[in-house]
Design a protein around this nucleic acid. Structure first.
Lengths: 128, 128
DNA sequence: CGGAATCCAGCAGGATACTG
DNA sequence: CAGTATCCTGCTGGATTCCG
């Protein structure tokens, strides 16, 4: 049972490993960080400014996770006034097309989904 | 071709609405449910059997969420021995290609990521 | 500047029991 | 069969404080 067999059947296999990976890469702040670093390397404080709603703790955790997975790279630039730069890695860049596809889907179908939500909420409202 | 094609592609904007939507659609169990229902319509108990690790509560919540977003459809078949069937909607089907892209990415780059993790963990171990 | 450490509230999600 | 209703707990993630 190879991966290609699964594809030939039209069947996706979602292992625990897959899910764990996606959880790490697609979590709340990873997309924003990825988004920023794809544009240009940035420092910690720069990322905080670019993503104002993230806390320092969450940003740190996100960067560590992405670094551990080889998605971003941490580069220490100076030692006196400590400067650290974060960069996207080649592996990180490969993540862009699929993520773009998802974001594009979200943007494209948002109206339909909003409509579906309104329908659903109204139904439930009338039923109660 | 060029290394600055990211700039040429323009900027992704990730709004809170986008994130909320992705959280609802890409959460822990949604992918598995979507996966099952893309193959064939199924009943509640069938889904539980197909996804053994999901609890009844989480499965219910997942189905409700997907139903509210117009991704799946809930069809009551009988009333005596109550039978309910869940089906993927046309809107739900549009979700497949981007999700496939992500899963494909995960499968393809899992080795590189595992290697990156090993490297990272070993570095941190040595630093201690 | 670039974090680490701590405390704490909220809630997602599991286990269990009951129902139409 | 297809859920609802509670109870309970671990983990996430915010706020705050401190450090090289």
């Amino acid at each position: 049972m190879t991966d290609t067999d699964a594809h030939a059947q039209g069947r996706l296999t979602i292992t625990a490993t897959h899910r764990e990976l996606l959880d790490q890469v697609l979590d709340k702040w990873s997309l924003d960080v990825l988004n920023e670093l794809c544009e240009r390397p940035q420092r910690f404080s720069g990322l905080r400014r670019a993503i104002p709603t993230v806390t320092q703790k969450s940003l740190t955790a996100t960067l560590r996770r992405l670094e551990r997975n080889g998605i971003v790279e941490r580069v220490v630039l100076g030692t006196r006034p400590v400067a650290v730069e974060y960069r996207i890695t080649p592996l990180g860049k490969t993540l862009r097309p699929p993520v773009d596809a998802i974001l594009h889907w979200a943007a494209e179908h948002l109206p339909s989904i909003d409509a579906a939500r309104d329908r659903y909420d109204e139904e439930m409202d009338g039923a109660r």
